[in-house]
Computed example of a mutant assay.
Amino acid sequence: MNRMWLTIITVVFLLIYAALIFFYFVQWNKLQDYKPAAQTPAVFVSVIVAARNEEKTLPLLLKDLSEQTFPQHLFEVIVVDDYSTDNTAAVASKFKAQNIRIIFPDAPPGASSKKAAIASGIKKTKGELMLITDADCRVSKEWLQIMASFYKERSAAFIAAPVAFTHDNSLLQIFQVLDFITLQGVTAASVNANVHTMCNGANLAYTKQAFEEVNGFAGIDKVATGDDMLLMHKIWKAYPQKVCYLKCKEAVVETTPMQSWKDFLLQRRRWASKTLVYDDWRIIVVLGFVLLFNLLPFVLLVAALFNKTYWIIFFFFFLAKTVIEWPFVSSVAAFFGEQKLMRHFFFVQPLHVFYTVFVGLLGQAGKYEWKGRRTR
Rank of each mutant, 00 (worst) to 15 (best):
residue 100 I to H: 06
residue 339 Q to S: 14
residue 162 P to V: 13
residue 116 A to Y: 00
residue 130 M to C: 08
residue 108 P to Q: 10
residue 228 D to Q: 07
residue 84 S to G: 10
residue 268 R to H: 14
residue 303 A to K: 05
residue 319 L to K: 04
residue 197 T to P: 00
residue 219 G to R: 11
residue 195 V to G: 10
residue 351 L to E: 05
residue 267 Q to M: 09
residue 219 G to F: 14
residue 342 M to S: 09
residue 90 A to R: 01
residue 34 Y to A: 05
residue 22 F to N: 14
residue 9 I to Q: 08
residue 293 F to A: 08
residue 5 W to Y: 15
residue 95 F to G: 07
residue 45 V to G: 09
residue 315 F to V: 13
residue 9 I to C: 11
residue 262 K to F: 09
residue 78 I to N: 07
residue 259 Q to T: 12
residue 213 E to K: 15
residue 112 S to P: 02
residue 53 N to M: 10
residue 280 D to T: 10
residue 180 F to P: 02
residue 287 L to T: 05
residue 102 I to Y: 01
residue 107 A to S: 14
residue 290 V to G: 06
residue 56 K to S: 09
residue 217 F to E: 05
residue 5 W to A: 04
residue 110 G to R: 11
residue 311 W to H: 12
residue 221 D to G: 15
residue 61 L to P: 07
residue 228 D to G: 12
residue 59 P to T: 12
residue 205 A to P: 04
residue 137 C to D: 12
residue 200 N to H: 00
residue 103 I to R: 02
residue 204 L to Q: 13
residue 58 L to M: 08
residue 79 V to Y: 09
residue 19 A to E: 05
residue 21 I to L: 10
residue 33 D to T: 15
residue 97 A to K: 08
residue 299 V to E: 00
residue 5 W to H: 05
residue 274 K to T: 10
residue 36 P to Q: 03
residue 206 Y to K: 05
residue 353 V to T: 14
residue 234 K to D: 07
residue 225 T to F: 14
residue 182 T to K: 13
residue 217 F to P: 15
residue 262 K to I: 11
residue 199 C to G: 14
residue 113 S to E: 02
residue 40 T to W: 08
residue 141 K to G: 06
residue 57 T to I: 00
residue 309 T to V: 09
residue 272 A to I: 04
residue 15 L to N: 07
residue 176 Q to T: 08
residue 13 F to K: 00
residue 238 A to C: 11
residue 287 L to R: 14
residue 293 F to P: 06
residue 19 A to F: 15
residue 298 F to P: 02
residue 226 G to H: 06
residue 245 Y to I: 10
residue 73 H to A: 03
residue 88 T to D: 13
residue 272 A to G: 06
residue 178 L to G: 04
residue 115 K to W: 01
residue 85 T to R: 08
residue 51 A to I: 00
residue 206 Y to V: 03
residue 310 Y to P: 05
residue 239 Y to F: 15
residue 128 E to L: 09
residue 232 M to V: 03
residue 209 Q to L: 12
residue 139 V to G: 09
residue 127 G to C: 13
residue 137 C to M: 13
residue 7 T to P: 00
residue 299 V to L: 15
residue 118 I to K: 09
residue 222 K to Q: 12
residue 138 R to G: 06
residue 19 A to K: 15
residue 226 G to D: 11
residue 284 I to H: 06
residue 158 F to E: 00
residue 100 I to C: 04
residue 374 R to A: 12
residue 158 F to W: 02
residue 135 A to P: 03
residue 336 F to L: 13
residue 247 K to T: 14
residue 289 F to D: 03
residue 18 A to S: 11
residue 244 C to W: 04
residue 310 Y to Q: 10
residue 34 Y to D: 02
residue 370 W to S: 13
residue 298 F to S: 03
residue 118 I to Q: 07
residue 141 K to Q: 10
residue 270 R to E: 03
residue 295 L to N: 00
residue 137 C to S: 15
residue 18 A to K: 10
residue 336 F to I: 14
residue 149 S to C: 12
residue 330 S to P: 00
residue 92 A to C: 09
residue 12 V to A: 01
residue 36 P to F: 01
residue 376 R to I: 08
residue 122 I to N: 02
residue 173 Q to P: 04
residue 57 T to D: 01
residue 207 T to E: 01
residue 22 F to L: 15
